[in-house]
Write a protein that binds this DNA or RNA. Structure first.
Lengths: 211, 211
DNA sequence: TAGATTGTTAATCGATTAACAATC
DNA sequence: TAGATTGTTAATCGATTAACAATC
């Protein structure tokens, strides 16, 4: 079956729709029109309808969208109906921050363990998640299903660790190191480049932005 | 003087150019052509030249670009020739991770202090940065120049804290809370939505992506 | 000078918005 | 039924790529 390729711009917006619909759900809102949602989200109603119709007709003429249904459907599109096993490489503050963020579990992302090389950290525990010796990583990955590895190691170490992860079968890399990872194309890399985010803020503060 | 508005897509790419040029600089590369750079970065040479020419002609026909000069010019465009005073709101793991990331200082972002409400954290120190009582925040901001506030507090508290920050004169908010902040338009908000980043990864892993 | 590579214009491609017929 | 709002096509807008004259 031919599947029309969905543009990256659309995908990037889906999590935000999901978040707004989740918030509405919590407020027990039952239905919402693209117009109302567009006003809350500060986008055009047209864009919302276009985006959603990439995946199917989730609404009803004259009524709008059922919040709970749409929320759940977008969740499925995003793959949030699946459980993912995640490991964290690097038990620095960032690694620990991710391990501590219990909210990921609510979305189906389960942190199974953390790997580090520092003897002082190995064996410690955080929210029941053990810090293991990085030397055990290969074996662990081969013996357990690991869907996602969050890489929070220094820039210099990230590329080789990522290659290893890919070699050992990890298909999803959540990369926090300030470098690009060139991996086989069956491996998905999602980057979080904090320094670059801060530079964008800096640009807009600096007055080089529209005056 | 009329200044052509620079598209957001271009701005988003600048930090990445800056990073690649910084890496080249460290390797003592003196010159680079748009073609070579495009191959490294996996973009088109045309795009690089278009992007740069939004800001002026940094290159030289027949030669290419001087790495050091271009790096420095992009740094200026991004406002990295300025010093920014930053505070962090929330001394959780994420707040501490940011405080610990000394690399920001190299780019001109100086973390002056952290604010929290937990008595157990107040008064502690990290890399010489003190955790202060959140009640002192208003006074601190009014007495000191604070350019950027990194908000790493829970979703429920973020909007009101951000409003306060704006009211007290902070013009740059680096928001890590999973919510949108609606602030006066003279306040710049840069969001880091980790959960949304993870959902994008999930989407691509889930097989809803192009098969 | 000849070769290389930019800066820039023109062509293409894709994404967003507008409009409206379909229909609940 | 009449009104509302979707799904979808068409129009517009913007961003990317291609091409090439300018020039180092």
């Amino acid at each position: 079956m031919y599947k029309k390729e969905i543009s990256k711009a659309v995908i990037n917006r889906l999590p935000r729709y999901y978040r707004y619909l989740g918030d509405l759900l919590e407020k027990d809102v039952v239905r919402i029109s693209s117009k109302e949602l567009s006003e809350k989200m500060k986008v055009t109603a047209s864009q919302i309808r276009q985006d959603l119709n990439n995946f199917g007709g989730f609404g009803q003429q004259g009524y709008g969208y059922n919040v709970e249904y749409l929320h759940s459907e977008i969740g499925k599109i995003l793959g949030l109906d699946t459980k993912y096993n995640m490991i964290i490489i690097g038990a620095g503050n960032l690694g620990l921050a991710l391990a501590n963020y219990a909210d990921f579990e609510r979305r189906g992302f389960f942190v199974k363990c953390i790997f580090d090389i520092a003897p002082s950290l190995i064996g410690t525990e955080i929210r029941g998640i053990t810090v293991k010796n990085a030397e055990e990583m290969e074996n662990y990955i081969k013996m357990n299903k690991v869907d996602i590895a969050a890489v929070t190691v220094p820039k210099t170490k990230a590329p080789s660790i990522a290659s290893d992860l890919a070699k050992w079968g990890v298909k999803g890399i959540w990369n926090f190191a300030p470098t690009d990872l060139n991996l086989p194309k069956d491996v998905t890399v999602e980057n979080v480049h904090l320094a670059e985010s801060l530079m964008k803020l800096s640009y807009r503060l600096s007055g080089n932005d529209i005056e």
